[in-house]
């Protein structure tokens, strides 16, 4: 089966001017990520993985090299065009959830659709509810973030990332604020979404989390040092069942 590359990067470089010094965060990175993949990007701090994710997420532009997202070359696009790409093609999940306070789950989940004028208010609501159903929060539609646990809050954030039906979901240390149990629950959810065909790129520094993906790209000092495709994907739900029951 001929697979379609969702992400195609070639010799990607990113430099920052810090004072008089030029910091080279990415020194020429190339890889493809195909539709339906579940990729983790690993690396120590300073390895360039945050810069990598900012560029992949169209929040930042590379200094040189090629980045094509779903066939669109990103480097030449204006800021407004980038915003539109983020709105239509990308879903974001952050380490600290970034939910709007005192705002219900539905309203949080439908946020990206506010910036898509093709979606009516009724459709927005419907799609937000569907996304929340998908992450298992059908009982919490009208709750506020402060009435939810960390894991539930992250589920709302995942629902928000799904609501625009993106070609790829970028997760930045999405389990970083959660304990092991909740982390595995969230990973289970990501695996489910992946099985349903969602392409997922997950930045983490935890090896056990990385093993729950299908492929890991390891960055060090701005270069890809390893690109591992797992023969056996660890099932998050099985791992969760193995955990000793606390309380």
């Amino acid at each position: 089966m001929e697979r379609k590359p969702i992400i195609h990067i070639e010799n990607l470089k990113k430099e920052f001017q810090v004072g008089d010094e030029v910091v080279r965060a990415l020194k020429g990175v190339s890889y493809d990520i195909y539709e339906g993949e579940f990729v983790t990007i690993m690396g120590a701090s300073g390895s360039g993985k945050s810069t990598m994710l900012n560029i992949l997420g169209c929040l930042d532009k590379p200094t040189s090299g090629t980045y094509e997202l779903d066939g669109v070359s990103v480097r030449e696009l204006s800021n407004d065009k980038l915003a539109e790409i983020r709105n239509r093609k990308i879903g974001f999940v952050f380490q600290s959830y970034n939910l709007l306070p005192r705002t219900t789950c539905i309203e949080n989940a439908e946020l990206p659709l506010f910036y898509n004028h093709e979606v009516s208010a009724a459709e927005r609501m419907e799609r937000a509810i569907n996304a929340l159903n998908l992450v298992g929060l059908q009982q919490r539609l009208h709750h506020m973030p402060n009435q939810l646990s960390g894991g539930q809050q992250q589920r709302v954030a995942i629902a928000r990332s799904l609501v625009n039906d993106p070609v790829v979901i970028f997760a930045d240390e999405a389990t970083g604020n959660l304990d092991t149990r909740m982390s595995y629950e969230i990973m289970g959810l990501f695996q489910d979404l992946n099985r349903q065909g969602k392409t997922i790129v997950f930045v983490t520094h935890e090896p056990d989390i990385a093993k729950m993906s299908k492929r890991t790209i390891v960055l060090r000092d701005g270069l890809v040092v390893e690109d591992i495709v797992y023969e056996h994907q660890v099932d998050a739900k099985e791992e969760l069942a193995k955990l000793p029951v606390t309380d």
């Binding site: 915003a83 983020r86 974001f92 625009n164």
Partner: peptide, 10 residues
């Protein structure tokens, strides 16, 4: 920041 990330333009 979030609004911009999910597609809000300046």
């Amino acid at each position: 920041g979030l609004r911009m990330a999910v597609g809000g333009r300046s």
